[in-house]
């Protein structure tokens, strides 16, 4: 296969990074941005799943399911894209990180299976015992998925070479709390009346837990991880922004400015992944000591993935805009799912 076309394309693309851009660093940022997008979007699905446990009536539970019904599957795909991107541009990191945290990865998958399946099953039958059981499964899956994902991120950040550490368990707790805040803020936008009022008080509580757990995780984790520098300017800056956004969320929510409150939560989620990325940089895996420049794929596949992402990600964003505008506005009590 040496026709002129196939010979010409790889040659020029293999010469150097496209437009001389710092592609390895950009991809490092992009991978975390995609993880953040997953945590923000599927995060409110998880949070709604946790808050599902606080709703007693059939109508309200249906309302919560209807609020995430058309969206959760698309939101979860961000995790698939995160995995695919990590595989494509940092294959060695993808392989060592996933195999090192073997059981943890399957715990995440188990949580996601439960969370995805439970609402579908819940709707199948309307007898009480059935719905109670699948309702519980939905709650468990919605707690387990972000918790184990948080522990994974904690292990990654602090370079834990075992199942978990105190610090990574605290990250797990922090991520679950953040998803509850996310879910409550989302329900602020998507519901009205009692559901909105009552879930938001859980949101405030979770917001406090998030701040405490995140700070505790950093303090504990930094003692055993030399690369985690708590007192650098970016770290302190991101922590400060997070505290301001947390206050902003509560204030905006109390003032019934629900979109603003939701945006303040989004800022915190992206703030969290930005913090993780900043603390790691320039390492990409502390356990093996791999730095971004060691772990990155060679120039040709890197350029190809960059072209793919540059062309496709704007399209993907437009799909989400179409989807969310088609189902804009709050759902009402008893509105059905499926």
């Amino acid at each position: 296969m040496t026709d002129p076309l196939s010979a010409a394309v790889p040659l020029s693309l293999a010469d150097g990074p496209l437009f001389g851009l710092p592609l390895p660093e950009l991809w490092f940022a992009l991978v975390f941005a995609v993880l953040g997008t997953f945590l923000f979007l599927d995060g409110f699905d998880f949070g709604v799943g946790v808050l599902f446990a606080t709703r007693g009536t059939d109508g309200e539970r249906e309302q919560l399911l209807a609020a995430i019904g058309p969206f959760w599957d698309g939101n979860e795909v961000w995790l698939v894209v995160f995995g695919g991107m990590l595989f494509a541009v940092f294959p060695e990191v993808y392989a060592t990180l996933f195999s090192r945290h073997y059981l943890l990865m399957f715990a995440i998958l188990g949580g996601l299976i439960l969370r995805g399946l439970a609402p579908e099953m819940y709707e199948q039958r309307h007898d009480e015992a059935w719905q109670r059981r699948w309702g519980q499964a939905f709650v468990v899956g919605s707690i387990a998925s972000p918790f184990f994902l948080g522990v994974f991120v904690g292990n990654w950040l602090f370079g834990v070479d075992g199942m978990a550490s105190i610090a990574s368990l605290l990250v797990g707790l922090a991520v679950v709390s953040l998803t509850v805040v996310d879910g409550a803020a989302y329900l602020g936008v998507k519901t009205r009346g009692d559901v909105r009022l009552e879930t938001r008080s859980f949101g405030y509580l979770a917001q406090v837990v998030y701040l405490l757990a995140a700070v505790a995780a950093l303090v504990v984790g930094s003692r055993s991880a030399a690369h985690v520098d708590l007192f650098s300017l970016p770290t302190l800056g991101l922590l400060g922004v997070t505290v301001v956004l947390a206050g902003g969320y509560v204030a905006a929510s109390r003032a019934e400015r629900h979109y603003l409150a939701f945006a303040a939560v989004a800022g915190q989620v992206y703030g969290l992944v930005a913090l993780v990325a900043t603390l790691l940089f320039p390492l990409v895996d502390p356990v093996t000591g791999l730095e971004i420049s060691d772990a990155i794929v060679s120039t040709l596949p890197l350029n190809l993935s960059s072209i793919g992402a540059a062309l496709l990600l704007p399209l993907v964003v437009s799909y989400f805009v179409v989807l969310y505008s088609a189902f804009s506005g709050p759902v009402d009590e008893g509105e059905s799912y499926g």
Partner: peptide, 14 residues
Amino acid sequence: GELFGGPLAMEGMM
């Protein structure tokens, strides 16, 4: 990973 990861990432995005 160089050959295999790319198609998986493309599958997700495209």
